[in-house]
Computed example of a mutant assay.
Amino acid sequence: MKLTLFALTFLISSFAFSQEKIVWSDSYKVSFNDFQSRESEVNSDLSSYTLHSGSIIEVDLTMSNFEFMVKKDFNNRVKSILDQRLALLAAPDTLTAKKLVALAQYDFDLSELYARKIRKEFYEKKGTFSDVKLFQDIYEKYNRELVEKISIIFKATSTEENDVFLQNEHTKVLEEISRLSDFCFDCKVPKKKKNRKKG
């Protein structure tokens, strides 16, 4: 059995975005077709299984100095994606493959949750004279948390083979995603209304 964790990808230069990169949405469901690595297969000759989820968070801060200085909302600069070219699933039977797809869906949703946490903290801490280091520090903090969380879940599900456990953890992630609805990829963070003094 082999499970590979993908760390976040922090980009300060532009990157090519291809059809193989699926941006997270609540309507998209991971399927076996997403695992486009050549090594992906269901084969009874296998004695173990392999999962590379392909879930990655990309941060793109390509902009002019002035744009960066005045920009406050970075929601659309932080992408939670599933890179189908990196996604690999190899299992000895369809039942195991189905469980691995469920685990990959959890991983994709968990990445979106941490993308929203990053967007939220970017928004709350970005000042006019902030520099890129602030973003790197925020990114690295959530990167550590994400990798630790995924490691715990992957270990628990692989040793206990507990479908109910994964479902419960997945429900918690989806609830947290919902609570951070202002920080989805294509959302505009609502501006706080200023209290007017009564004269």
Rank of each mutant, 00 (worst) to 15 (best):
Met1Trp: 04
Met1His: 11
Leu3Gln: 11
Ala7Trp: 09
Leu8Gly: 09
Leu8Cys: 09
Thr9His: 12
Lys21Glu: 10
Ile22Thr: 11
Trp24Tyr: 13
Ser25Asn: 14
Asp26Leu: 11
Asn33Arg: 06
Asn33Leu: 12
Phe35Lys: 07
Phe35Glu: 04
Gln36Glu: 15
Ser37Lys: 11
Ser37Pro: 01
Asn43Arg: 13
Asn43Cys: 10
Leu46Glu: 03
Tyr49Asn: 12
Ser53Gln: 04
Leu61Ile: 08
Thr62His: 02
Phe66Pro: 00
Glu67Tyr: 07
Glu67Leu: 05
Glu67Lys: 10
Val70Asn: 09
Val70Lys: 14
Lys72Leu: 03
Asp73Val: 02
Asn76Gln: 12
Ser80Gln: 09
Arg85Cys: 00
Ala87His: 07
Ala90Thr: 02
Thr94Gln: 15
Leu95Cys: 03
Ala97Arg: 01
Lys98Val: 01
Lys99Cys: 10
Leu100Asp: 03
Phe108Ala: 03
Ser111Pro: 00
Ala115Met: 04
Lys120Asp: 08
Gly127Tyr: 13
Ser130His: 14
Gln136Glu: 12
Tyr139Lys: 07
Ile150Ser: 07
Ile150Cys: 00
Ile152Cys: 02
Ile152Pro: 00
Val164Pro: 01
Gln167Asp: 07
Asn168Pro: 00
Glu175Val: 08
Glu176Leu: 09
Ile177Lys: 08
Ser178Ala: 13
Phe185Thr: 00
Lys192Gln: 11
Gly199Tyr: 14
Gly199Ala: 10
